[in-house]
Design a protein around this nucleic acid. Structure first.
Lengths: 195, 195
DNA sequence: CCCCATATACTCGGTACCGGATATACGGGA
DNA sequence: TCCCGTATATCCGGTACCGAGTATATGGGG
């Protein structure tokens, strides 16, 4: 069976190991330090499953098994040639081909007509505010990172996320106005249904 | 144990049943007809699991068990009072509170520095084109839906998605230029690493 | 009237994933 | 010196999810 590119955590593991050999716990540490867990979902259970899977497919290899005192053994892994190839190929594919992703908000907003218009307006406003807060938090973080002398390329995903959040906020603002003023298409019928 | 709001398919089920009682297979049909599967991930396995879970938590109730000839039994479900409450509450929460979601592209772009600049430019361009195609396809669909006399509220999630796709395309276009012209922060070092 | 492609309706086994449990080491305060 | 809170490092049981499989009914062409 060929390796399945499902969990992006596996991608992160390959990326880390292409720097230097590590044991799983160290990978987790490093990801935390670099705020990578903002972008890639990390939890220990999945990490060990993913590492084992990569190992089975010989994309990584056990470089050493260390044992210090009575501590649990630490298996240090290194990326293989096939692993490096997989990393680059997967990465290219991930960027070039938009994946079909199901976002919870899209599901929610598609059913917004089930709520009374007043409720809908309220929750959309609340989201708008929340998105605004995320934006300011991100701006502060970017300021800090740039101040530390990190190049833009090192936090390019935050740049992307900011652009998306700004677009979302703009859309929410438009929709809120359209609901408040009753100019969204189908408003009369919507209002009638909730009397 | 209280009901866990994980799979949005359960939300879709509650929404459908708040229209009229249905059996699971009929729900799937209806979702397909209405292009809801664009927004909520649907497959039979999950559908039956989700329906069973809703039933266990008494958010829906078995209204009738029909049997026609030698066909498998069809259990028709109806939403309960608690189910309607859950639907509205969940919906409000989904819209009002941005959920932490991990998008594959963000993971990918955060590691774009691992690719040679030329490769990076290529894949970003390819994505830009793909997003453009999605946009035109969406525009055609919207035209069709509006032509059928459907109100904007009925396809509001497509409106949202279009706004997001436009923002993504704009960002990709910016990034592509920044890479081509070498103006993205950290470009020299990036180029040096790949000689 | 027979055949087969398609539609109907659900079931089931496998697996990836989650998050809490486990077990030892270390360090600092009383 | 003795706790105990935190850090180190992995494991494991449960479950939600997936998608392929099953079995019968329908209906249109030859």
């Amino acid at each position: 069976m060929t390796f399945k590119r499902t969990n992006p955590l596996a991608l992160a593991v390959l990326a880390l190991l292409s720097e230097r050999p590590m044991h799983p716990y160290e990978m987790a540490q490093t990801m935390r330090e670099r705020h990578q867990e903002e972008v890639v979902k990390l939890n220990y259970g999945s990490l060990y499953t993913v590492v084992e899977s990569l190992h089975r497919h010989e994309l990584i290899a056990a470089a050493a098994v260390q044992k210090a005192g009575n501590r649990p053994e630490r298996t240090v892994y290194a990326v293989t040639g096939a692993g490096t190839a997989e990393l680059h190929d997967w990465l290219r594919d991930l960027i070039a081909t938009p994946a079909k992703e199901y976002r919870a908000f899209e599901a929610g907003i598609s059913m917004v007509g089930l709520l009374p218009p007043a409720d809908a307006l309220d929750v959309v406003r609340r989201r708008e505010a929340a998105v605004g807060e995320q934006l300011t938090a991100l701006a502060v973080l970017l300021e800090k990172l740039a101040g530390m002398g990190l190049p833009q390329l090192a936090w390019i995903e935050l740049d992307y996320r900011m652009a998306m959040l700004r677009a979302e906020r703009a859309w929410l603002s438009w929709f809120a106005t359209a609901v408040r003023e009753g100019t969204v298409g189908g408003f009369e019928h919507w209002e009638d249904r909730h009397r």
